[in-house]
């Protein structure tokens, strides 16, 4: 991703940050550094950093005991379980099918491949509310899938936890495919040929040679998919049924608290979610560095 020159500069900076900074400041050739960085920092602070810090300040005003009570009531705990449990499951399903989709898109040729490739991005582009009403209709008791599944198996999908799962699989679908694809494209066939020429079966080659190469990207994609699923609101709210303790996700609970003018409760839950999001973001950054390091090798 990065140029060698930048990497070298980075290494130099790691050795002596201040001296290398002075060196660079004297040597910089292109104009506009102060203007663009200044604008970036001001805009970032106004839109993102100050509002986020204000939320943490607001929550700290609650005091520990009130905060703890707000985030540990049975209804809130139940919504954590629903959100995290189903998001994990959805990310796992996406990881499993994401491997297949990425593999097929990179390694095989077949008619309609381009369209299939473009379809992967649709959950990024389709507004969540549109996906939400569409999934709720398809999997509803009279829907294209909902009706036959109900008739054949007696299982209801819409307005149950299964409905939430369907919606979260939809929103997280592109992440695993899109993180695996570039890694698979970079993977030289020579390694697999070498394994095969040394007598490995195709199965052994996939598990022992290809598998370890893909693993960091797979975990990254899984984490991205999970992070997206935990915060998702629009596509879930129509299909979930929104029953407290059963099918109530965390974002919905925040909105419910707001509508009841329980700003403290909403803030406390939001802060828990923010902390989890930050931790996930840090983990994903570390994972991406891990998988990039693997690719350079």
């Amino acid at each position: 991703m990065q140029e060698p020159a930048i990497t070298v500069a980075k290494q130099a900076r790691a050795i002596n940050p201040i001296a290398s900074l002075q060196l660079w400041w004297k040597r910089r050739i292109l104009p506009g550094f102060g203007l663009t960085l200044g604008f970036t920092l001001v805009y970032l602070s106004l839109i993102v950093l100050i509002p986020l810090s204000a939320t943490f300040l607001k929550a700290s005003g609650l005091g520990w005991e009130a905060f703890f009570r707000a985030v540990s009531s049975p209804r809130v705990i139940a919504s954590y379980q629903v959100s995290f449990g189903i998001s994990l499951l959805a990310a796992a399903i996406n990881a499993l099918f994401g491997i297949v989709v990425a593999w097929v898109l990179v390694r095989y040729r077949f008619p309609g491949k381009r369209i299939l490739d473009a379809m992967v991005d649709l959950p990024f582009a389709l507004p969540t509310a549109v996906a939400g009403i569409s999934l709720a209709t398809i999997y509803g008791p009279n829907g294209w899938f909902g009706q036959p599944i109900l008739a054949l198996t007696g299982i209801k999908i819409a307005y149950t936890q299964l409905g939430i799962l369907v919606a979260l699989v939809f929103v997280g679908l592109p992440f695993v495919v899109r993180t695996l694809q570039p890694v698979l494209e970079d993977l030289d066939l020579e390694f697999e040929e070498a394994a095969a020429s040394l007598g490995a079966s195709r199965q052994q080659t996939i598990i022992r040679v290809v598998g370890p190469e893909l693993f960091p990207a797979l975990v990254t994609g899984f984490a991205l998919s999970f992070a997206r699923a935990v915060g998702e609101y629009g596509s879930v709210v129509f299909i979930a049924g929104n029953m407290p303790m059963k099918t109530e996700i965390i974002p919905l609970l925040i909105i419910t608290k707001l509508e009841q003018y329980d700003y403290r409760g909403a803030t406390a839950i939001a802060v828990v979610m923010l902390i989890i999001s930050f931790l996930l973001l840090l983990a994903i950054n570390a994972l991406q560095r891990w998988s990039n390091a693997g690719r350079i090798r």
Partner: peptide, 8 residues
């Protein structure tokens, strides 16, 4: 902002 839930 990508990591933060839209509701938050």
């Amino acid at each position: 902002p990508f990591a933060v839930s839209p509701v938050v």
